[in-house]
Amino acid sequence: MLDDLLARFGKRDRLALARLLTLVARGEHLDAIRLALAAADSAASRPAPPVVALTGNAGVGKSTLVGKLAEYLRGQGQSVAVLACDPQSPLTGGALLGDRVRMPSRPDDLGLYIRSLAAVSGNQAVAEHVELMIRLLAGFGFDVILLETVGAGQGDTAVRELADVVVLLVQPETGDELQWEKAGLLEVADVVVVHKADLAGAERMESQVRELLTLPGCREITVLRVSSTKQQGLAELWAAILACPRHDARVGDARALLRRAQQVLAERFADRVQRVGPVVDRWKRHELDEAQAADELLQLLIR
């Protein structure tokens, strides 16, 4: 059944993509899917699509902005996949995934794919195995991947590893203006968006953020105002995202892979654990590219 799915996926069957995403979300057949993608990756020469994460507190308008950005990109002719995360109850495992409400409904547009995901609440900003879902969407051929987190302050470093560019959303007049700063969010953000810029206080918010960024030790971060309601600032936002020094998403992917490899090896083949480190070192020294490193790690696992 999996072989059939993967074959259909290879032929760009959208239902197969949907089903594979479900399997990954459930943590099923991860290694086999990884392997299949790695094989396909080394065959293809396409560059990996940019992965952009949008994060920020609840109510700041993440889904709305993801939706507007997706529409903007569709207007530019780019195909877009969205992974939208909502919290899952740790008690019942249930989740109410309502992000689509604020996203464009374009049933005839095959260049837009939206998938709602549940993330176990607590310390996860995104659903489990998102890195593999990203690779699936990339493998399917989407030009841009947008990742919406559950909220800021939870598992930010994981988001940092998954995405090329992290966009942090803040809004005017929230009363908790400096909370995200405490959470160290500015350390993971590449772009800060003052969202809902049509509301009063947006300029003040922008200058507060800029002031904060002049503190010693802060990286170069773009700050800009965006209004989804008035459709203002989207082009500027996309330009700012593209201008960010590209973190290689594969770094995150390789790290996730490394963790997974170590975990499985430790569980099953204690003798092979020490062989993981050298592979990663060679990759860091650019002696191996990501695909090769991934391949070697997988070989370690399945042999």
């Binding site: 899952q88 109410l96 309502g98 409400v101």
Partner: peptide
């Protein structure tokens, strides 16, 4: 949700086409 399901709610005024697209994706 409280019974452990994953509920996807796409909002009001869904056309039949939009519903089918959501179910598929």
């Amino acid at each position: 949700r409280d019974a452990g399901f994953h509920v996807i709610y796409p909002g009001l005024w869904q056309s039949p086409e939009a519903v089918v697209r959501t179910v598929a994706d």
